[in-house]
Nucleic acid binder design. Structure first.
Lengths: 158, 158
DNA sequence: CCAACTGTAACAAGATAGGTTACGTGTCTT
DNA sequence: AAGACACGTAACCTATCTTGTTACAGTTGG
């Protein structure tokens, strides 16, 4: 395993969903992410449980946003995917008896906690709409260069 | 594997070495860390290459500090063990074609870079002597509660 | 009923730190 | 010179976690 990419993937897909003219199926989303439909359902399940997206079963079903992108922060999504560990480094044991080791882990833990606080503060203050706005500045027509097939077809087909 | 504990372990062992009255063998150190002598040699090899410790082969050999703990920062050790990844989260692919994905990764990357800069700044300004001082405040006699057997026996044995 | 979806369980794959065994080499003691 | 002691390193296995994949059950609409 390399690095947990669920947060990145979910942000990516939520922006696409916002520009999609109808519900997106897991299959469609999986092709967009270059992965498998089961992986999509698995990861999006958390977002559904937190009320950021809705899923409909059966014929014509799929996924849709349950609120605007300006109402969802990166922190929301981070929590919805289960707050996976942020850091790849850490102490060797959880509660060392050795007081030297305790001192090391305390100092190291302080630095990690500071960095984590900063990171989560950034996550808290950035909405997905902010990221979408960054994209719109680069692509004023609001159409993705790659996944254009599922984007903003409202005027053409609906 | 859970989290990379090499940094924590190396800091731990360097403080013990500073209080040891003679060279410590990989075997001794491994018992202190609850691991294997090969793991110790493997990890300490980086510290040796950077000049923070020396190793002597053959009878009576082992490991010793090559400079004072106040001359080694956490950043030094982090670099000496090969700068392993700090974060457990990240983008799904390195250079996505999709511009939405690029916008997501850019925003996410900014937050991660800020947190990383803060963390490395802490690493840079904290010496191992600082951690040892924390320990000394708790254990004024300078003797570890667990690994006392290899500590500061100078007055008793030499 | 059937086709199109989601929901989930179960298991394999890939990556990486860590653990273990084995063996080579250097060095001190006798 | 022999032998014990200790590092250096390769090779292989294990554990853990995300991701990928297959299989199948349940739901919905024509």
């Amino acid at each position: 395993m390399r690095r947990d990419s669920r947060l990145s993937r979910m942000l990516h897909v939520l922006i696409h969903m916002d520009r999609h003219y109808k519900r997106a199926t897991s299959e469609t989303i999986s092709k967009m992410l270059g992965t498998n439909a089961v992986v999509v359902r698995r990861t999006m399940a958390g977002l559904r449980d937190f009320g950021y997206v809705r899923s409909e079963q059966g014929h014509g079903g799929g996924w849709e946003l349950a609120r605007g992108l300006d109402q969802i922060t990166l922190l929301d999504i981070y929590e919805a995917i289960g707050k996976p560990p942020l850091f790849a480094i850490g102490p060797s044991v959880d509660q060392p008896e050795c007081l030297v080791e305790q001192a090391v882990d305390a100092k190291l833990g302080d630095a990690l906690k500071e960095a984590e606080a900063l990171l989560l503060e950034r996550f808290r203050t950035v909405t997905i709409a902010d990221i979408a706005a960054d994209f719109d500045r680069r692509m004023p027509e609001g159409r993705c260069n790659i996944h254009g097939d599922i984007h903003a077809e409202q005027s053409a087909s609906g």
